[in-house]
């Protein structure tokens, strides 16, 4: 195939978080050796050390934004990349929903204040440099700017990340590698990728149903008679983890990963965000579990409920900022 006449300009950035999403993007290049053929990464501080001034040289076609908005610098980065980019993509659970750093929103307010003090941007008499001020709490990208597409996961799986790059960057110019990803994408998104046109704005590159739909574990009868924690004894293979009494969020989480965690014997924690038909994953989990209690005795149920711990930190493990923001919705750029 001939080289595209004009490569798409790509920006890649991580705010507060780890580098797993960026390394996943880098691994696309390792695995398919094609990223450089279709995209010209004009702004990638982690790999290329690009300064912000590079964004003033013209509009970027696609910006892949990972990480939680936790500092004023993160907010400014989001605003700048929104302004500079045709398409802004939230990559990974942190950008999409707030992610693990968002868990810190549950911590005591005194800790948040300590962080704020550390990050004070007040001038220092000795000429020492300053830090970007910490935001009052961690936010997801869409709480700061409008987001065009979402690639969920912590980190996103390679097939869905590649599907997003095919759809948004290559736009039909790549050899058809769609089968790699299409099996877990909604039909309309897969068809758009195949046709080389942009999927509908707001598309999440993930499945249409819940993780349970693609989990390979055996589902029998949902009766919640005991609440277990993952350090206790359970069958690592075979039967549905929820049916064994473990809190597993597959029932409330968007499909697309193929049940990676449940497949290796640990419960789903919801890194793909809530399934499309669900309003609140925590409420869904409470409903799913309480409706299958294997008892009608109030005392037994009360004893069972006693064993549920840290529900907010579990049900909203990756989505606390997006689901439980204490702030008013900020203005979007």
């Amino acid at each position: 195939m001939s080289r595209p006449e004009q490569k798409k300009k790509l920006a890649i950035y991580t705010a507060t978080g780890c580098r797993a999403c960026e390394q996943g993007i880098l691994d696309l290049n390792y695995e398919v050796n094609e990223l450089g053929r279709f995209a010209d990464p004009v702004f990638w501080p982690y790999v290329l050390g690009t300064p912000w001034e590079a964004l003033s040289e013209g509009k970027v076609d696609v910006a892949l934004f990972a990480g939680t908005i936790r500092t004023e610098a993160d907010r400014q980065a989001a605003l700048k990349l929104r302004e500079s980019s045709e398409l802004l993509v939230a990559v990974g659970a942190c950008a999409a929903f707030g992610g693990l750093p968002g868990l810190a929103n549950l911590a005591d307010a005194t800790e948040a204040k300590a962080g704020e003090t550390t990050g004070s941007s007040s001038a220092d008499g000795e000429g020492k440099p300053t830090l970007p001020r910490a935001e009052p709490q961690g936010l997801c990208l869409s709480q700061v700017v409008a987001v065009d597409y979402v690639v969920p996961g912590c980190p996103p799986t390679q097939n869905l990340l590649w599907a997003a790059v095919l759809a948004l960057v290559c736009r039909g110019e790549s050899p058809a590698r769609l089968s790699y990803a299409a099996g877990r994408l909604p039909e309309a998104v897969a068809e758009a990728i195949a046709a080389g046109v942009l999927p509908r704005r707001g598309t999440t590159f993930a499945g249409e149903k819940a993780v349970c739909g693609s989990c390979s574990r055996i589902k029998e009868e949902k009766k919640f008679g005991i609440c277990k924690r993952p350090y206790q004894e359970y069958q690592e293979t075979g039967r549905c983890l929820l049916e064994q009494g473990l809190i597993c969020q597959g029932v409330a989480t968007q499909e697309g990963c193929g049940g990676i965690c449940t497949g290796v014997g640990v419960p789903c924690r919801g890194c793909f965000g809530k399934a499309p038909a669900i309003f609140d994953p925590g409420a869904k989990m409470v409903g799913a579990i309480s409706s299958t209690f294997d008892s009608k005795d109030a005392k037994e149920i009360a004893a069972l409920v006693e064993n549920f711990v840290d529900l907010a930190g579990t049900f909203y493990r990756y989505s606390l900022p997006s689901q439980c923001s204490l702030l008013a919705t900020p203005d979007k750029g």
Binding site: A107, A112, G115, G119, V309, G313, T314
Partner: peptide, 14 residues
């Protein structure tokens, strides 16, 4: 230039 609030993330978790 970005915080890693590990203690805050872990506090209260199982």
């Amino acid at each position: 230039t970005a915080p890693r609030e590990v203690a805050a993330m872990c506090q209260g978790r199982p």
